[in-house]
Every structure is written in structure tokens, then in C-alpha cells.
């Protein structure tokens, strides 16, 4: 799914600088970098997608790991409020910073277990009594 590395050398938690003006912002396939990164960081919430990424050896690529580190700027304002799947996205982003999780998620069993757990919790969390 990757086109080209956008920027991986930025420090963690530091959001990218705002583009100068909207007109000059480069677009990728008609989408801004904001749109693409927002979509990607939320797709990371899907355990099956993570399993797919792991099976394609993305999660062992140092550049990709640095990119995951960089994506942590979504955990802070002003970008935080654009996440529409906040729970899964934030948790997965946190887990993805761990070497062990990045290795373990290649197992389909773990992905399935995560998916089942997530579906179960999403129903149970608001049930009272």
C-alpha cells in the first residue's frame, strides 16, 4: 500500500509542519497527505490488516518501524480529534511500538483473537449492570 516514504526522520510525537497554503500542497492520487495518513493510521486498528502487513514483511522493515513511530503524532492534538476509530487506533499504535508485538502479529491466531476480543469488548463496554 505504500507509495514512497514520506518522512521518517522526524522525532516521535512531533506532528509534521503545516503546509504553507492549500494550493501548493502536493497530492497523492488526488488525496492530501493528511487524508492518506489518517486513513492509514486508522486502518492499523484492524488486526487482520496488521497481520497482512506483517506477512508482507512490512513490520520488520526499519524504515516502516520509524514511520510507525512517526505516526504517533496522531495520539496528540490537534490531530487526535480526527480519529473516528479512536479506541482501536490508539491501542494498536501503542502496541505497534513494541518489537515483540510487531513479531507476534504475524500469527493469524493472534490476529483472530484480537479481532474477537475487540468485537466482544465493543458490545460489552456499554452494557450496564
Amino acid at each position: 500500500m505504500e507509495s514512497e516514504p514520506m518522512s521518517v526522520d522526524s522525532t516521535a510525537l512531533e506532528p509534521p509542519p503545516l503546509p504553507e497554503t492549500g494550493a501548493d500542497e502536493p497530492k497523492y492520487g488526488g488525496h492530501t497527505r493528511f487524508e492518506l495518513e489518517l486513513e492509514f493510521v486508522q486502518a492499523l486498528g484492524n488486526p487482520q490488516y496488521l497481520n497482512y502487513l506483517a506477512s508482507r514483511k512490512f513490520l520488520t522493515n526499519p524504515a516502516f518501524v520509524a514511520y510507525l513511530d512517526y505516526l504517533q503524532y496522531w495520539t496528540r492534538p490537534p490531530y487526535l480529534k480526527y480519529l473516528t476509530f479512536p479506541t482501536a487506533t490508539l491501542k494498536m499504535l501503542e502496541l505497534l511500538q513494541q518489537e515483540k508485538f510487531r513479531q507476534d502479529i504475524i500469527s493469524p491466531d493472534l490476529a483472530n483473537a484480537l479481532a474477537l476480543e475487540g468485537m466482544k469488548t465493543s458490545v460489552e463496554w456499554h452494557v450496564e449492570g
Partner: peptide, 13 residues
């Protein structure tokens, strides 16, 4: 699903 479904990822940007 509390995350974007596969179909949604496949039809995304």
C-alpha cells in the same frame, strides 16, 4: 467492528 473493515480499507484512498 470497532475498526475500519477490510472492505472499507480496500475501497479507500
Amino acid at each position: 467492528l470497532p475498526w475500519p473493515s477490510e472492505a472499507r480499507i480496500r475501497s479507500g484512498a
